[in-house]
Write a protein that binds this DNA or RNA. Sequence first.
DNA 1: GCGGGCAATACTGTTGACACTTTTTGGTCC
DNA 2: GGACCAAAAAGTGTCAACAGTATTGCCCGC
Lengths: 226, 226
Amino acid sequence: MTGQQRTRVDTVFDAIFQLILSGEIPLGGVVNEAALADRFGVSRGPVREAVKALQGRGLVTKEPYFKARVVDLSVHDMIEIFQLRESVEGMSVKLATLAMSDEAMQRLLDDFEQAGGNGRVLDLHVRIAEESGNSRIQSLLCDELYYLLRLYRARSGSTPGRHDNASAEHWQILRAMKARDAELAESLMRAHIARATEALQRLLDTESAQPPPEAAKGRRRKETEA
Amino acid sequence: MTGQQRTRVDTVFDAIFQLILSGEIPLGGVVNEAALADRFGVSRGPVREAVKALQGRGLVTKEPYFKARVVDLSVHDMIEIFQLRESVEGMSVKLATLAMSDEAMQRLLDDFEQAGGNGRVLDLHVRIAEESGNSRIQSLLCDELYYLLRLYRARSGSTPGRHDNASAEHWQILRAMKARDAELAESLMRAHIARATEALQRLLDTESAQPPPEAAKGRRRKETEA
DNA sequence: GCGGGCAATACTGTTGACACTTTTTGGTCC
DNA sequence: GGACCAAAAAGTGTCAACAGTATTGCCCGC
């Protein structure tokens, strides 16, 4: 029985992540080891390791003897993440365009046509990362950055007015991939993400012009403006 | 006393990393919690968390109930890392070129001129990442990828015949940065790393043509060729 | 002699208790 | 009334012991 053995650390990890996504533990909120251990019916050990893993993925910040806190994702953080995504996803689509077999390419197009672009926005990006053939890029995008994106979107919703454009841009990228034009696909992907970054930049400008009207309930924001 | 409090986990983390770098724990070798705990005079708890942190940084692989092993960095892994570096460091130098103050730029040039390009090769890359102003890119490069690079180089030495070219390429990049030509700096950096990637690719080709002469002592390579 | 099954071993996963640090609370002095 | 100090409370860091799983070595049947 050497199959997919799930230890309690993994279970607790997912459980805490769900708690964060659902907002039960708000962004910037404290993560109490003992309370969580009691809630999940395990000892503090697994909870400790799960929190450590969350810290390793950048979802939780913590220093010795201080309370662990869920990361407080500001718009500025998102801009940093999008700058990173722009470069990495450009490489991702470039590699995928060069590496995919004709069959895999056709499958990707079919899947996306079937979904009609109505699938979840990240699906295409995930699929491309998986097809890049570079496991490290795939891990960075799918296991680290997209977690943070989901977290941010769960809080603030997607940037409005972007969704319709995004679908058209996705089709452009797919066409370039099918034509095996790796350079074009990279440029289109980078422009696609850069455009989203600019939207965030505008949001940051308006936000700093007029202070946020109301902090979400349960938030602690004191050190954000420092 | 709210200073830089170092917990035992941090100490053990560094100690194990040094053990790996020095080769005392060979690449692919097992990491025994109890033995390390006994050696460092601590309990298994801190060792466990340190190993978990090393796992989070990709230096150790592990699955439940199996022994933890130091990652076995193949040339193929290095190629993946260099592809990732090519995209991220391109963005890094682009952002740094746009963000650095004139003073910081001059300081960077002075430091590098003083070192005469004889400094450790990674220093320039580290400095650029620090000046990019993007903390996530800095963390990815300095806290994750460069660890793996040091590990790989400690085992196999730098790719021969590259060192002299690299210095000239570094100066080209610095000139582009000083001229505030962000696009050129990005292109040069990407070409710089792509060239190193090609050297690795050639190494991979010759290595697969003639099987490696001798596995390093203490290595376990059984599952690598699968 | 050799392969399959079974007991002994070694190691990892988990737990509850104890030690140390931070935070809060209450009281005192100015 | 407010600032400062001390003690209690809360929470994290560490430990040693126990439980569960993979590995190793051995014996038996062929």
